[in-house]
Design a protein around this nucleic acid. Structure first.
Lengths: 337, 337
DNA sequence: CTGTTAGCGCGTTCAT
DNA sequence: ATGAACGCGCTAACAG
C-alpha cells in the first residue's frame, strides 16, 4: 500500500546521508557501529528493501542469467535447468528460465527481451543450431554457453554429452547380446544429438562387420509420434529387425507403444535400447536398457563455464566439455529366448 | 564489444532530441515521417536496443511476473508453467520462473529477490500453505495468485482443482466396479490437495455405506518412496485391500513399483486408481485409471486472474476458481476376474 | 511536431 | 567516519 521507502527515506530517518546508508546496505564497512545500528533500525521500521533496478542501473550488472531451453516439459531439460538453478543461486546469480517450444521466432523474442532487460550471461539450448539469430545478441558481448546443442555459427563455450560414444556403446551391447538386424530411429540429422547418435550406431555396426541396412535406418523428429510411426513402419517390412535403437526418450515411448499394439514383444520377438533415461523406462516390462546422462550435472557444468566467463571477461579461446554418458543395462536388451 | 548505444547517441546521430527518439521507440506516434525514418536509420546503424532497466525505473513497472513452483521436474508443474508462459508472453508479460524444491527458506529468498528486482505480479504454489512468510512481500501490494495450494494466511485470488470431487469420482468408480476394501495413500494432510482428496475418498465410501477402515488409510508425502512403502505395508496386513487409490502421480509410480515386486497383480488381485495423469499411466499394463486435470489450462487461468488484478489495482474481493478434473477410466480399475 | 527539463533510486567519487 | 553531488538511460510534462 504505502509506497516503497527509498534509501533517502532511510537516510532521513537515521539522520545520515544516503551514502552512509548505501554503505551499510552493501556491507562495505567503515561505518561507526552506532550509526549502523541506527540505520538498521530505520531500515526495519520502514521495511525498506533495496531497489535492484536502480542498482543495476548504476552498477551495470544484473546478477541474473538467462536460460533458454526448447521444451520445459521434457524431463531431460527440466533436470538440466534444475542443475543450473542450484549452481547459479549458490553463486549469487538468479536464473531466468524460458522455454521456446522449439520455436525459432520465440527464441529470438526471448533473446531480445534478455538484451533489453540486461542479463550477465546466457545458457542456451537453441532451437536451431545453424541459425544466425544470435547475431544481435552477440554484439552485446554477454557471455554465452551452449548446452546439448552447439551454436555452430558462433565461437562460444559448449557443454555436450558423448552422443556418439553413448550410442556406440548401446548398439555394441545389442550386438554382443546376439542381435544382428538392428534398426535405428534417428533424430533430425541437422541436430548434433541426432547426427552424432546415428554416427555412433553406424560405427558400432561397422566395428562388428555388420553392414548398415538402409531399410533399418528410420527418421524421427525426437517426438513420440515419430517413434510410434517408425516402429509400425519397420514391422510392415518384409524383413524385420530383431532389435531397435531409439535416439531419444520421447521416441522410445512412441516406439514401445507401437510394439505393444503390434504385440511385437520385447524379450520375445525383439530387443530394444534407447538414448536417455526416463522414469517410465524402469516401469516397462521388461525394463528398458538406456544410455543415461547425468542431467543435473550437465546444468551445473554449464553454469560453471558461464561463471568463469563472467568473471574474466578476457576473450580466451572457446572451450568444449563433453560429459560421458553411461549405459544402463536392463532387460529390454537381453538376448531373445 | 562496443559499449551499448543509448537513446542519446541515437538522438545526436539523427539530429533530434532524446524525447523524439523515445517517441518512435515506443511507437507513440506524432512524429514526422521523415524524422522518424532518420531516427530508425540511426537506431539500426548503432544497433541501439532500449534499456528496459532504465525504462522500468521511471515507469515503475517491469512487465515481468514471478512464478514460483515447488518442483520444476514434476510434470504437473512444468505443464502449469507452460500454460502460464504462453498466456503471459501473449499478453506482453515476461514470466520469471523459479523452483523452490519444496524448501521454505528458498521460497523466501526468491520472494525477496522478486521484491528487490521488482515484478508486476506473482503466481505461486507455495511450499507452505500456512506460512506467514509472505508478510514482507504482501506489504508491496503486488498482486498475487495462488495456484493448486491456497495461501491460507492471505486473501489472494486462488486457482485450485476439484480435489475432493476428483477423488470422490475415482473412488466411487472403484466401488461401482465392485471393489469394497479400498485403501488410500494420502498426501500430507496439511496441504489442501492432500486433505481434500482424502475427504473425497471418505465421502465416496460413506455415500455407499462403506465404513472407513483405519488400516486402509496410509500416509504418504507425495513422493515416490512413500507410495512404494505404503503398498508394501498394505500387503503385509492380515486383511488386504482389494483396491488402492493413490493421491498423486509420484506416489502412484511408487505404488505400482511395489505391486510389481510383490506380484500383487493389478487386474488379477487388486484394482487401482490415482490422482493426476502422467505419461507412464498409459504405458503400464494394464493402463492406469486416473483423475486428470487440464494442467496448462490451470496455468492459463492463473495468469488471467493475475492480469486482471494488475490492470485494476482496485481491491476487489478475493476470488477463487476451481477447475473440475475428469476421470479417465482405463484398465487398472476394471472389476477383478 | 519537437525540444527542454526534471526526476526515477541508487552507487560512487571526492571532499571534509 | 560521513556527506554533497553527479550520473546511469529513460519517460513524462510542459513549452514552444
Amino acid at each position: 500500500m504505502k509506497k516503497k521507502a527509498t534509501i533517502l527515506d532511510v537516510a532521513r530517518k537515521a539522520n545520515v546521508s544516503s551514502a552512509t546508508v548505501s554503505r551499510v546496505v552493501n556491507a562495505q564497512g567503515g561505518v561507526k557501529p552506532e550509526t549502523e545500528a541506527r540505520i538498521i533500525k530505520a531500515i526495519e521500521e520502514l521495511s525498506y528493501v533495496r531497489n535492484a533496478i536502480a542498482r543495476s542501473m548504476v552498477r551495470k550488472e544484473t546478477k541474473t542469467i538467462g536460460v533458454i531451453v526448447p521444451d520445459i516439459t521434457n524431463p531431460f531439460f527440466s533436470q538440466v535447468i534444475s542443475g543450473v538453478e542450484e549452481a547459479a543461486i549458490q553463486a549469487g546469480f538468479f536464473p531466468i528460465v524460458t522455454s521456446t517450444r522449439e520455436d525459432l521466432l520465440l527464441e529470438q523474442q526471448i533473446l531480445t527481451h534478455y538484451l533489453e532487460r540486461g542479463i550477465d550471461g546466457l545458457i542456451i539450448t537453441t532451437a536451431q543450431e545453424n541459425g544466425t539469430h544470435l547475431n544481435e545478441f552477440m554484439k552485446s558481448s554477454i557471455p554465452v554457453v551452449a548446452v546439448d546443442r552447439p551454436l555452430k555459427q558462433y565461437d562460444v563455450d559448449t557443454v555436450l554429452s558423448g552422443n556418439r560414444e553413448g550410442a556406440f556403446e548401446a548398439v555394441s551391447h545389442l550386438i554382443e547380446e546376439g542381435f544382428k538386424d538392428i534398426a535405428i530411429i534417428r533424430g533430425p540429422q541437422n541436430t548434433t544429438p541426432g547426427l552424432e547418435r546415428y554416427k555412433g550406431y553406424v560405427k558400432a555396426l561397422e566395428a562388428n562387420g555388420i553392414p548398415v541396412q538402409p531399410d533399418f535406418v528410420c527418421d524421427g523428429d525426437f517426438m513420440q509420434g515419430s517413434g510410434y510411426e517408425q516402429v509400425k513402419n519397420l514391422y510392415s517390412q518384409k524383413r524385420k529387425p530383431d532389435a531397435v535403437f531409439s535416439s531419444n526418450n520421447f521416441m522410445s515411448l512412441g516406439a514401445i507403444r507401437a510394439m505393444r499394439e503390434l504385440d511385437w514383444k520385447i524379450g520375445r520377438d525383439i530387443g530394444f535400447a534407447g538414448f536417455d533415461d526416463i522414469e517410465v523406462a524402469t516401469f516397462m516390462e521388461p525394463a528398458l536398457t538406456v544410455v543415461s546422462r547425468r542431467m543435473k550435472h550437465l546444468g551445473a557444468i554449464a553454469f560453471q563455464y558461464l561463471e568463469n566467463r563472467m568473471e574474466k571477461k578476457g576473450e580466451s579461446a572457446k572451450r568444449e566439455y563433453i560429459l560421458s554418458p553411461s549405459l544402463v543395462i536392463r532387460d529390454s536388451s537381453k538376448r531373445l529366448r
